[in-house]
Amino acid sequence: MNSRLLRRMGGALLFSVLVAACASKPVAELPPLRMAAQTAHQKALEAIRQGDLPTAAEFWQQALSLYQAQDDWSGQGAARLGLAQIALRNQAPTEARDWLAPMLVQTQFDHALQAQAQLQMAQSWLKADAGVAAMHLMAAEQWCKSQCSWRWAVANLATQIALAKQDFMRARSLAEATLAAIPASETAERSHAHRLLAQALLPSNATQALAQIEAALVLDRSLARPDWLREDLLLRLQIASQLEQAELIKDTQARLDSLCAAVVCR
């Protein structure tokens, strides 16, 4: 009796699964070129996420060509931004500017993409000319307003510009304002804000700077970014030297050596 009931229930379940499966949305087939572009785009994003910059650059190049072939300016913009980011991470600001420059003048790119291009252009000028960087950052802010997902990057870049101009007071107030407003979910920008505050505090109060860099290190360890950890540790070493704490210097040096044994330290 029970087995018959179970068999019926099984049958009903199988039937309902089949009906549900048949009722699923039909697959809309994409044109091959579109599919190839999206695949290259996804792979580039995945490679960036994994920190594999050469592979990411290759896929962005592919995606750019494929988007150009389809007259897709949003895709082209995304690919150019990706290529510029890789150039910046490879310490090649001139190359980054080459990728971004067309985006600032060609009206086919939408405003959001152009605003992000202005932000990345500001990053590319940061070390060479803080004034030009500030000009591009202003343009990015103008287009972006508050709805941009990367407004915290804008805030941190403003702090970086203040630091580049040796305006430590302004840098401190900007970093503190950012830390007061930034949500906990924005871990990367939050950790950067801590680091920038540590930099701003270093000339006046090294002890407070140490607390800020420790906070940045905790966040960067959770993000598992060796390049950021290295920057943090170098700053910690500088702070420890200023505080003349031999133990802290030894500990930081040991951590740096261990990190550089695993990854290439430029």
Partner: peptide, 12 residues
């Protein structure tokens, strides 16, 4: 399916 998005900028 991961959405096809613009690469997010980082401030550093």
């Amino acid at each position: 399916q991961a959405p096809v998005v613009v690469p997010a900028p980082e401030s550093r």
